[in-house]
């Protein structure tokens, strides 16, 4: 597990900064909660919308925007927090093989007695662990900082765990796609591109298809839908928000490793 440990060590300083960034986002979001909680007008506006449109705001199933689960789900879990985690996952995933090959640093490491498959797998695992720590850091900071703002009212541990688990698997899937793009091409660019298409396309499609009330099976083709379609904070653990993304992530990882094993280095 030398490569795992080394990858982890190389990235732990950056992880600290990212964690700090996520804590700041949590704080800013929490600070504004009291103003929303006390104003009912915005909530009434949302309640007047047709159900599909409300669903795009994560307001389906009668969750109020001024409640803690409604507010946090919209302001954190279906916006900036998710976006940043996905960015972290994509940047990290594309660099695992593609980035280090592009920099030229991969070759000398592979002059050592280690197989390419093992190197790639250890790096993927290291990123998965780093991402887990980042999510954990965000969760802990929310848990510690929210009570003074009454921002956890109506959210139980299961709901919180479900939301962060969904977030984690969604980001992990993007990391896997970015890794595959990099591992297959030997460059960062294709990794960024592939995963960004999934992120931007998936997010936009989720909103549009939900608003258009598209058939369920069409919406269910989209990993962003798996995560966003119910307010996990309010309704708690959902297998479909975690398991499919986790299983699907195996596919790009396997494809990336298989291609990287045998191809020419750049």
């Amino acid at each position: 597990m030398t490569i795992f440990r080394r990858t982890f060590r190389d990235r732990r300083r950056a992880l600290l900064w990212w964690t700090l960034g996520l804590v700041v986002i949590n704080v800013v979001t929490l600070v504004f909660y009291p103003t929303v909680r006390n104003s009912q007008s915005f909530d009434e506006l949302v309640q007047q919308m047709p159900e599909p449109l409300r669903a795009t705001f994560g307001m389906a199933g009668g969750v109020s925007l001024s409640s803690a689960p409604g507010y946090l789900w919209v302001r954190l879990f279906s916006s900036l927090l998710t976006a940043l985690l996905v960015v972290y996952a994509i940047v990290g995933g594309a660099s695992l093989v593609g980035g280090s090959e592009e920099d030229g640093t991969l070759e000398l490491i592979l002059a050592n007695p280690i197989s390419r498959a093992s190197l790639a797998a250890q790096r993927v695992l290291a990123l998965a662990a780093l991402l887990a720590l980042l999510v954990l850091g965000s969760a802990l900071s929310l848990l510690l900082l929210a009570p003074p703002f009454s921002a956890l009212d109506g959210i139980d541990g299961a709901g919180l765990a479900a939301a962060f688990a969904g977030l984690y698997t969604l980001a992990l899937l993007h990391a896997a796609v970015a890794f595959a793009g990099g591992a297959i091409s030997g460059r960062r660019g294709p990794g960024f591109a592939a995963a960004t298409v999934l992120a931007a396309g998936g997010f936009l499609a989720q909103g549009l298809l939900t608003a258009a009330d598209a058939p369920g099976w069409v919406r269910n083709l989209n990993p962003w839908h798996w995560y966003l379609h119910t307010n996990l904070l309010a309704f708690g653990p959902s297998v479909s928000a975690v398991l499919p993304a986790l299983l699907l992530a195996v596919v790009p990882v396997a494809a990336g490793v298989a291609s990287f094993r045998r191809r020419d280095l750049r």
């Binding site: 030398t2 920099d103 000398l108 002059a111």
Partner: peptide, 29 residues
Amino acid sequence: RRRVGYLPAELAIDRRYTASDVIEFFGEL
């Protein structure tokens, strides 16, 4: 490759590593 030492024409190693890091890392591998 276990019995091989390779000195590339252009040394490309993570710029943040010290020589100690390199020795420890490669030694372990």
